[in-house]
Nucleic acid binder design. Structure first.
Lengths: 237, 237
DNA sequence: ATGCGACAGATGTCTGACATCCGCCAACCT
DNA sequence: AGGTTGGCGGATGTCAGACATCTGTCGCAT
């Protein structure tokens, strides 16, 4: 109910054309208007404050803040698989697996997955192709323990890796990501489908499942002339 | 007090080594422990829920969620000027102004600033140099109204543009930003300090002041081999 | 004119109560 | 014996009312 009220209040602010600086109704009024208690109203308003949509001044009231009016479509802060992202952008792509193999982890992979640097991980390299050109190049690493009795070569990763992991009990929930602009490593740039002259927008992320375990480290190269990421930025916090 | 309690609870979760899935003390216990009312505890906990740090199950309790353990240093979601960012990363840079001039806005600039496409804006192009090499190339646009009686050429922008705007009553608060990986436009790549072969990490953002006005549209090119942005990503919301 | 206090109205916090949901377990029925 | 039901404890969700604290305003006394 608090959540519902919060969303209602957001609508109210957006729809009533309340401009930054304007005062919003008091807790008492809102409680009366929506037939809920003041405590409930306060919890909803607190959420809006944390979102930076309203500012509060003790003794005076609440005022819509500067951030209203700023919004973006698919913020990078929303965790989603490459498959989901491409579908959301309307791209029809085909997946091609370049390689699936057991290999020694890079330092980065070892640290992210919490495995020994002398150990072994599964590394999966894939292309997302659109009209015979690679839009995204993915290099993913995960623990060999997830294979169970299967060998890497037996598996079919042309679908969503996130889905495959979910089937093994690891629902990806969130990640800590790095964003860089890099050229394509020469080994991958050598492929005919991969444009080696592009700037590539690279997301390297450590993904954790619902239980908080680091399950996947992946680096996704997004073609620079195709992809744009969006994000809202705020002072403080 | 709610905010203070929220931060205390975050510490409590982090320091007590509570792992994802573990239950946190009940509202009643927390209220007793910190000598506050249950209402106050609830407001603080609601904030943690919105942050995705705890999950709540009606009738059972609250449990620390998967996102605990994920954190990054200087998230892109934190709005800061290039000057602040470079200082935070420990770079000592010198500013060089390439040009300040009245000019016709690009479509993008006109839309972001809410000015007529046939109108005029001030465009400022600057370099942040480190050891005679450009780390960041900025192209900023703002309304000519901000000049007052001054002419562009009279102004000194070697300091922080954000500070200059603040002095004119426009404290930059937040922005909606795009992130791309692009080559440097040829005109700027021609400069000896600018590496034209680099991939550049580009942030184009519309910045709004405390009153919610779109004050500044800027595009910052960050050298790809130097800069890495960080961000937390979460499912939902 | 200036300063001070009363006052209204807003948010911040507290208290106690009841509603609802969940997990558990004992009593019950078949 | 086994499955169902109902009660109970404990957790969150919501409510009503009260008081505390802060802000701006207005009127009155100096």
């Amino acid at each position: 109910m608090v959540i519902q009220l919060r969303d209602t209040l957001v609508e109210l602010i957006r729809d009533e054309q309340l401009k930054p600086g304007e005062q919003i109704p008091t807790e008492h009024d809102l409680a009366a208007r929506f037939s809920v208690s003041r405590a409930t109203v306060r919890e909803a308003l607190k959420l809006l404050e944390q979102d930076g949509l309203v500012d509060v001044v003790h003794g005076r009231g609440r005022f819509v803040s500067a951030n209203v009016g700023l919004s973006v479509n698919r913020p990078v802060t929303r965790f989603e698989s490459v498959t989901e992202m491409l579908a959301g952008l309307g791209y029809i792509t085909t997946n091609r697996t370049l390689s699936v193999e057991r290999a020694a982890p890079t330092d980065e992979e070892a640290e992210a997955l919490g495995v020994d640097a002398q150990g072994e991980i599964v590394r999966l390299r894939r292309l997302r192709l659109h009209e015979d050109s690679a839009l995204v190049v993915s290099v993913s690493a995960f623990s060999t323990a997830l294979l169970g009795t299967d060998e890497p070569a037996d598996l079919d990763f042309t679908g969503s890796l996130a889905q495959w992991l979910a089937g093994r009990g690891h629902d990806l929930q969130s990640s800590a990501a790095q964003i860089q602009a890099l050229p394509m490593p020469s080994e991958l740039a050598a492929l005919p489908e991969v444009d080696g002259k592009q700037a590539w927008l690279v997301i390297s992320e450590r993904c954790v499942d619902a239980a908080g375990r680091s399950v996947l480290f992946s680096r996704e190269y997004h073609r620079g002339d195709v992809f744009t990421f969006h994000v809202l930025r705020r002072r403080g916090t």
